[in-house]
Amino acid sequence: MSASQVGVWETDFQSDLTFGDATLAALFGVDPLDAANGLPLADYIRNVSLEDREMLFDRLNHVRLSGGMFVVEYRTHPTPDDVRWVLARGRYERDPRTGAMMGRGIVIDITDSKLNGQMSDRAIFVMPDRGEAALDRIASLAIMVRREIDELGERESSPLRKAIDTLLWAVGRALAAAQTAQSDRKSRFN
């Protein structure tokens, strides 16, 4: 299997079936015909590295319940002797007709880039749908970025800290202005 192959998947939680193409099947070591016809999610998870399963479940449980987007890197074992690094990106959302949670996305084979010195870098991003306004989502994301920058140990004078602090300040001002405008509208109607 060559690197940078892209597999496509779709999960229907009501039927507990995940449908995938031949590339997805190869990355997870399942039969391509079975993947095309749909397999329980557990059949794919069985071939996720034991060291990555808890992290994967932890990150995905939020979006699997309420909907949302995710990007997660983890390892699979298509065969006992083969380890593949994959980058999964997807979105879970409710089917407007049935109300059932559906997931769709891609899985990219990034094994070669991991073997070329990027082993410790991992993409992990989860953004559950919260029904928030755009400005509230921006604030939440900015706070998440600030925590990550703090984890890097950046000094207050570093360009990253200055940039995120400026963004947080601007978002705070915008939120305050929106709150004031909303209060003004309410007082006009009372």
Score class of each variant (00 low, 15 high):
Ile108His: 00
Asp121Arg: 15
Gln118Phe: 11
Arg155Lys: 15
Ala178Cys: 05
Arg155Leu: 11
Ala100Gln: 06
Ile143Met: 11
Val126Trp: 11
Leu152Asn: 09
Asp165Gly: 11
Pro159Phe: 01
Arg161Phe: 01
Asp165Asn: 13
Pro159Leu: 05
Gly172His: 01
Ile110Gln: 07
Leu175Lys: 14
Ala181Arg: 11
Asp112Asn: 13
Ile124Lys: 03
Pro96Met: 07
Val145Gln: 11
Glu151Ser: 12
Ala134Lys: 14
Ile143Ser: 04
Met101Asp: 01
Gln182Thr: 06
Phe125Met: 12
Lys114Ser: 03
Thr166Arg: 14
Ile149Leu: 15
Val107Phe: 08
Ala163Phe: 02
Pro128Thr: 02
Leu115Asp: 10
Ala142Lys: 09
Asp112Lys: 07
Asp129Lys: 13
Ala100Pro: 01
Ile124His: 04
Leu160Lys: 08
Val126Glu: 09
Gln118Asp: 08
Asp121Cys: 06
Ile106Cys: 02
Thr180Pro: 01
Leu152Met: 12
Ser140Glu: 13
Ser158Phe: 03
Pro96Phe: 06
Ile106Leu: 09
Ile138Leu: 15
Ala142Ile: 04
Arg155Glu: 15
Ser113Phe: 03
Lys114Leu: 02
Ala174Val: 03
Arg94Ile: 05
Asp165Ile: 05
Ala123Lys: 11
Asp184Arg: 13
Glu156Phe: 07
Val107Glu: 14
Ala142Thr: 07
Arg104His: 12
Ala142Gln: 11
Leu160Trp: 03
Ala133Arg: 15
Ala123His: 13
Ala181Phe: 00
Gln118Asn: 15
Ile110His: 09
Gly131Ile: 05
Arg104Cys: 09
Met102Tyr: 01
Gly99Asp: 01
Arg146Val: 00
Asp129Trp: 12
Ala178Trp: 00
Thr98Asp: 00
Leu160Asp: 07
Glu151Ala: 09
Arg146Tyr: 10
Asp184Leu: 04
Gly172Arg: 02
Ala133Asn: 12
Ala123Thr: 12
Ile138Asn: 13
Ile110Leu: 09
Asp129Arg: 15
Ile138Phe: 14
Arg137Lys: 15
Asp112Phe: 02
Arg137Cys: 06
Arg161Ile: 02
Glu154Ile: 01
Val126Tyr: 12
Ala142Cys: 05
Gly172Leu: 04
Arg155Trp: 08
Gln179Trp: 00
Ala134Gly: 07
Glu154Ala: 14
Gly117Pro: 04
Glu154Gln: 10
Ile110Phe: 08
Arg97Gln: 10
Lys114Tyr: 00
Asp150Glu: 10
Thr166Pro: 01
Val145Glu: 10
Arg147His: 12
Ala133Val: 04
Asp109Phe: 08
Leu168Tyr: 05
